[in-house]
């Protein structure tokens, strides 16, 4: 590397040397500082900055060295033709055909070997069975049963003391780990309800419950716009109209949130009349509404 870059004059090369020396010194300082910060449990910012200084010093030193002191002339180099010559192709063809000929005379062996490979391929694909059981029952099942008490995430039963404007995430009693059973409990004006026919008895005292899993992409429908009686999914902004039975009224969701039929027992606990009005969560091929 002593010859230097011919296009740079003597003073240019001297300037490059000075700059490269300074850059490498900065790199040394950064690397040393990292060592100090690391062993004294310094902050992430101090360790990151000192690493950055070390690396930048190293990079700048190298680039200055390369540009100012190493040969930088443009060179031209020939591109060889990529395809093989006709002669090479012919030689390959001969070798291959000679080998192929010997295999070809033992057709039965070839067929048998192919058969083994084919069956082995089938075997390996069937290993997918180990990955999980048939998914369909789990996709349809929730833990809601007739008479199940509504409880909060910590297992406390919900009573009719819930007020208008409140929103609770509830589960069937004893099943607070059941992801598909998560449900929103709200209280609304019974007189304003416009539910589909057949659901008249599902909302005692204005208590109304819907699956919390968005029918679009499975996020929890976590936002409640009290003033307009809308449930909003924070992931893709689908909105559902509570009073009409959680029909989708905006955004990408195409199906209503399934409703959970409720009743209030004589002791004042809120219970489910049974499972949701339809399957909760995002749709799939064999979904039955």
């Amino acid at each position: 590397m002593n010859q230097g870059a011919p296009e740079n004059g003597k003073s240019g090369r001297l300037a490059a040397v000075v700059m490269a020396v300074l850059a490498f010194l900065a790199g040394l300082a950064g690397a040393g500082a990292f060592f100090y910060f690391y062993w004294t449990d310094g902050s992430t910012a101090a360790m990151g900055t000192s690493t950055a200084v070390a690396m930048a010093g190293m990079g700048a030193g190298l680039v200055v060295w390369a540009r100012g002191l190493m040969p930088g002339e443009e060179v031209s180099s020939k591109r060889e033709a990529l395809p093989s010559s006709e002669e090479e192709k012919e030689q390959f063809r001969e070798s291959f055909v000679a080998g192929e000929h010997r295999i070809g005379r033992r057709r039965l062996l070839g067929l048998l070997a192919g058969g083994v490979l084919g069956l082995l391929a089938l075997d390996s694909v069937s290993l997918l069975r180990s990955m999980g059981k048939s998914p369909l029952p789990a996709l349809y099942r929730t833990a809601w049963t007739k008479g199940a008490r509504l409880v909060t995430f910590d297992g406390r039963p919900v009573t009719a003391a819930v007020q208008k404007g409140d929103i609770l995430t509830v589960f069937p009693e004893g099943q607070t780990d059941s992801i598909t059973s998560q449900t929103l409990l709200l209280r609304v004006d019974e007189a304003k309800l416009r539910l589909p026919p057949g659901r008249e008895s599902w909302t005692p005292m204005g208590f109304i419950a819907f699956s919390k899993i968005c029918t679009h992409a499975g996020c929890p429908v976590a936002q409640y716009e009290k003033s307009v009686n809308i449930l909003l999914c924070p992931c893709h902004q689908s909105s559902f109209d509570i009073l009409s039975g959680a029909l989708p009224v905006g955004g990408p969701a195409g199906r209503p949130l399934p409703q959970l039929p409720l009743y209030v027992d004589p002791a004042g606990f809120i219970r489910a009349q049974g499972d949701f009005s339809s399957h909760p969560g995002p749709g799939f091929w064999s979904y039955k509404s």
Partner: peptide, 13 residues
């Protein structure tokens, strides 16, 4: 080294 410097600065700051 410049790429590493940029990533270290981002990661640290």
């Amino acid at each position: 080294f410049f790429v590493f410097a940029a990533l270290a600065a981002l990661g640290g700051l």
